[in-house]
Design a protein around this nucleic acid. Structure first.
Lengths: 208, 208
DNA sequence: AAAAATATGTCAAATTAATAACAAGGTATT
DNA sequence: AATACCTTGTTATTAATTTGACATATTTTT
């Protein structure tokens, strides 16, 4: 399943295609040309065709792309072919907010538990999900085939969690702590650095 | 204050410089060369020098950069020279999570109120911040010199909020709803599309 | 005080990414 | 069935970004 050296820029556009195609699907749009898609999604038609062709010829000359097929194909590329067991570490406000997002679950990311070190939070149940003590972290991860961890701790706790993750079979971290984690090569990390994002907005507000 | 055509790629690296310099400052590191910084931050030394030189010669040959000065300069570039009044629209879990992040406030982003349409939430007070009814949105924004709005509604509500924002003096939106907002040219939008981010992670997990 | 080492700012080269162009194949219309 | 029209996949071109090189200035060492 290994595609050869697709650039990061292309990969980061795929979820957007996926999102727009889903919307078209919901609106009963059956076919779409790169030119039409270009208009709504804001990329050039040329870029759309080139992006998609990294993964195969999904279109048909003179016709365009079948929306449902393309949606499915991009889903496959993104790994949406099966469910993933996930847990959240850090059951504070952000962790709870993520726990309440049902859209992740619908895409196949199944929340199995939350973890915290705060005795006031451990033991709670949020949306049918138990908050467990970090003492039981490794045991739970191993016994429940957890594949993805969302790190929602504060800055100081994040690297410790990453270190503990690195000793398990978990190979993916979604990191919300404002720090760049050091992890083994075979662990992938995707960061949501909110502050970085806010400061970018601030820059453009100033420039405007 | 308008810098000429700095590329988006450069801008998005600035907050990371800011973050690392803050850490060095906290650790009493007084000076840093592009080479040393390169090692910890992961960009090439050449790129660091070129990035910084877009905004001026902050370094000194043979010495490097003064950490405190550089931190201050990058802060200025990012607009961290004064406070901004912000409000949150959508006081659900995510909105509340953002309201509880004190780090935004420390950087100058002062939360003045939260808004919602849900009668069960309107009237609550979260971290000394009142949740107001959307009926009073325009009035509040105008009277309190609000400059930035964090949109934390669901997908369907986001564009409506953006439309209402566009009729006020607010010129910056931090959007957490999974939709690309249509706004006038002079309104800047920074998106946090969590699902896009999660799917990128999923892609790399699959590829791994 | 001189020499060696360091490190910037900047220009040039190389690499990567985006856009444009177009042949070929398919669709729609007459 | 023939013709005109679309639209893809792909190659070529252009643009943007990153990396490398180096002259010059400063610091550190001898």
């Amino acid at each position: 399943m290994k595609e050869k050296n697709i650039s990061l820029a292309v990969i980061r556009r795929l979820p957007k295609y996926h999102r727009y195609l889903k919307e078209m699907l919901d609106n009963d749009i059956k076919r779409i040309s790169s030119k039409e898609l270009s208009k709504v999604i804001g990329f050039t038609a040329s870029q759309i065709r080139q992006d998609l062709n990294n993964f195969g010829g999904f279109g048909q000359q003179g016709y365009g792309y079948n929306v449902e097929d393309l949606y499915e194909e991009i889903g496959k590329i993104l790994g949406l072919t099966r469910d993933y067991n996930v847990i959240i570490v850090g059951a504070g406000n952000l962790g709870q907010a993520l726990a309440n997002y049902s859209s992740f679950g619908r895409l196949g990311f199944k929340l199995k538990a939350m973890f915290d070190i705060n005795p006031k939070i451990v033991g709670l149940t949020i949306k049918d999900i138990q908050v467990l003590d970090m003492d039981t972290f490794e045991t739970f991860v191993n016994e429940n085939n957890v594949e993805i961890v969302y790190i929602c701790t504060n800055r100081d706790g994040a690297q410790d969690v990453a270190d503990r993750i690195s000793k398990t079979n978990v190979k993916a971290i979604w990191n919300f702590a404002p720090v760049d984690l050091k992890v083994p090569e075979d662990v992938v990390v995707e960061n949501v650095h909110l502050i970085d994002n806010l400061l970018t907005l601030s820059y453009f507000l100033k420039e405007n």
